[in-house]
Amino acid sequence: MSSVALTGGRGFLGWHTRAALQEQGADVAVLPVGEHFDVEQARRALDGAERLIHLAGVNRASEDEVRAGNLLFARQMAEALTTVATPPPVVVYANSTQAGNGSVYGSAKAEAGDILRAAAESVGAQFVDVVLPNLFGEHGRPFYNAVTATFCHLLVAGEAPSVDVDKQLTLLHAQDAADLLIGTVDTVDTAPEQQETVSGLLARLRDIDRVYRAGEIPDLSEKFTRDLFNTYRSYMFLARPEMPLLKHADPRGSFTEIIRTFGGTGQFSFSTTVPGVVRGGHYHRRKVERFLVLSGRARISLRKMFTDEVRHFDVSGDEPVAIDMPTMWTHSIENTGDDILLTNFWTDDHFDPDNPDTIVEAV
């Protein structure tokens, strides 16, 4: 996949989709819509692109704004799509299970899809209508994107979220949605959706919060639990990136418990690094990973994908702290001392060279 035009690239699902596209080595053009739409910029991005992915939409505003915004964004992309010499052969629309349910948002999503479908068919492009359920994932916006984000935010803040209306949810992790949108998974029927009630979701997240606050890792053998845990960690990392560890010492030396894990296929590793050398420079889409410097001094650096801010943590084996690497944050570790650096790593999976989930990206 060489080039993709993407709307809504700065939103929650857009961020996840861009991380997935980067693994494929795609050249992604993020197109603004609405008042910042530039038809010439859109035409340049669409001309010769392999895929247009239309994510941009309005779901939280007045009824008039919801309807007008969704239709405007679709019409803007339709205008650009139908006026380029070489339009993309595939046009993907991020639709919603609410489409056609009689609500203003559902009607607007359905009508916007019709607009984009007509434009795609007029240029001979395949129109892929991806109907998405309730999405959850890392860095969702609390009180906006989904109830999962709100629950995680409140739990991390030490508050006690409650369930106002308990109902059945169909949940899909944003990275699985991204795979659908970029075409690495064929149909929504094969995507790993999860059925859960609102109260059941909250109970799962409370268990994760309780176990993680105790310095332990929950059982991650179930994919849904792993995805919920990564979602929860994205909030906890921002609130508490460093986790002090209890160190027991006597004349023989010292003992520090790194981590306890309940089930799963976790893997512990360690590395030695000579002074001045930097390791890493990559991110993961799904892997859970923890760093712990056992001996020497190091600087651990992390950058959230598609942002410029780099977070640095200067750590030492004299005062061990564990730092988790959030998914979709590129990271590295540099030996800043004069001696060999000894670092312990833990991941939730066994390394698979055919599917390493390690995407090169400089911090």
Rank of each mutant, 00 (worst) to 15 (best):
D176Q: 13
E65K: 14
T225R: 05
L205Q: 02
L302A: 12
V274N: 04
V4F: 06
R141N: 13
V315M: 11
D349H: 12
K109R: 11
T97R: 11
G140S: 03
Q168E: 15
P320R: 08
A118M: 07
R226A: 13
A120D: 08
A85T: 11
A298L: 09
R233T: 08
K304E: 15
G137L: 09
L228A: 06
T190W: 00
D38G: 11
I208R: 06
S62P: 06
E35I: 07
E79L: 12
V288M: 05
V360M: 09
D64R: 11
N230H: 06
N95S: 15
V28P: 00
G102I: 09
P192V: 11
Y235M: 03
R51H: 06
L245C: 04
F136A: 04
D166L: 12
N134I: 09
G25L: 11
A174S: 15
R206I: 09
E361N: 12
P161K: 07
V4Y: 03
A49V: 02
L201V: 12
E79C: 05
H139V: 04
A110D: 11
Y232M: 06
H331M: 04
R233I: 13
C152G: 07
V66C: 03
C152H: 02
S254A: 15
R213G: 11
F127L: 08
G253E: 06
V363T: 08
V188Y: 01
Y283E: 14
K109A: 07
L81V: 13
V30R: 04
G14L: 07
G137I: 04
H139L: 11
E222K: 10
M325S: 12
L169G: 02
E138M: 10
V156M: 07
T7I: 10
V185G: 02
V156G: 02
L245N: 04
H312D: 15
S332F: 01
T231P: 01
